[in-house]
């Protein structure tokens, strides 16, 4: 796959994930594809972005001449401050997360299971010395929206009957958005609610080892960015 194709796919996923947000939501965007979601939030929406290193009302990346090394997001990238911003210590920030005060988080994944388990921080056999805030975010946010490619870079499935990688959290995923489909999770069951018009249900099942039901109101969506 070319880099350009990969970028198009990532943006396609981010654009669709942005549609899962609601006007007025307090949202934390994770690293990777989720950071792109900010580009696709409808302009008439007021979304309040939180960053776990201690700020609400995160603004867009500043111009290079106004970068402040002490105004960064959780990916340590420079950010800006919107009117109405507030700063707080990390304890308050994680109280916001774990305490159920975030309306939604958009987060990446290594694997998602059909029960809604998420694996996003460690790969077996490799030394993993970082977990960061992902576990608190997924446990605490009211809606957990996973935005990820349908397959790994090597073409292996990520959406599985059960996760084989160490878990971030059990049964916390609410929505899964990939370049091919959108799934909802409820009470340990996974349901297909939207499929790209560029593939058939059989083709989708062939790349999705997880068992899922099909919503009676299944939507077929145009995702031309993903067709190649």
């Amino acid at each position: 796959m070319s880099d350009m194709y990969t970028q198009e796919v990532r943006h396609s996923i981010a654009r669709r994930a942005a549609q899962e947000l609601r006007d007025g939501d307090i949202v934390n965007l994770g690293i990777g594809i989720p950071t792109l979601v900010n580009n696709y939030i409808p302009s008439d929406f007021n979304i309040h972005l939180h960053t776990e290193n201690g700020m609400l009302e995160v603004g867009p990346s500043p111009s290079p001449d106004s970068v402040d090394p002490n105004l960064i997001n959780a990916s340590r990238q420079p950010i800006s401050e919107l009117p109405g911003a507030s700063y707080f210590d990390s304890g308050m920030s994680f109280s916001i997360m774990r305490g159920g005060h975030l309306d939604a988080t958009v987060i990446g994944a290594l694997q998602v299971s059909q029960a809604g388990d998420l694996a996003s921080w460690a790969v077996p056999g490799r030394t993993v010395l970082g977990v960061g805030g992902a576990m608190d975010l997924v446990v605490g946010a009211k809606r957990v929206i996973v935005a990820t490619t349908h397959l790994t870079k090597d073409g292996n499935p990520k959406i599985l009957p059960s996760c084989t990688y160490p878990l971030t959290a059990k049964q916390e995923v609410d929505v899964l958005v990939t370049e091919h489909a959108v799934f909802h999770f409820s009470e340990g069951q996974m349901t297909l609610v939207e499929i790209g018009e560029h593939l058939t249900l059989e083709e989708l099942k062939a790349i999705t080892p997880a068992g899922f039901g099909v919503h009676p109101g299944l939507t077929v969506a145009k995702r031309k960015e993903a067709i190649h």
Binding site: S90, S93, F94, V128, V131, G132
Partner: peptide, 10 residues
């Protein structure tokens, strides 16, 4: 010793 960040703060 690795802790989730919220657990670390708390």
């Amino acid at each position: 010793e690795l802790l989730p960040q919220g657990t670390f703060c708390e």
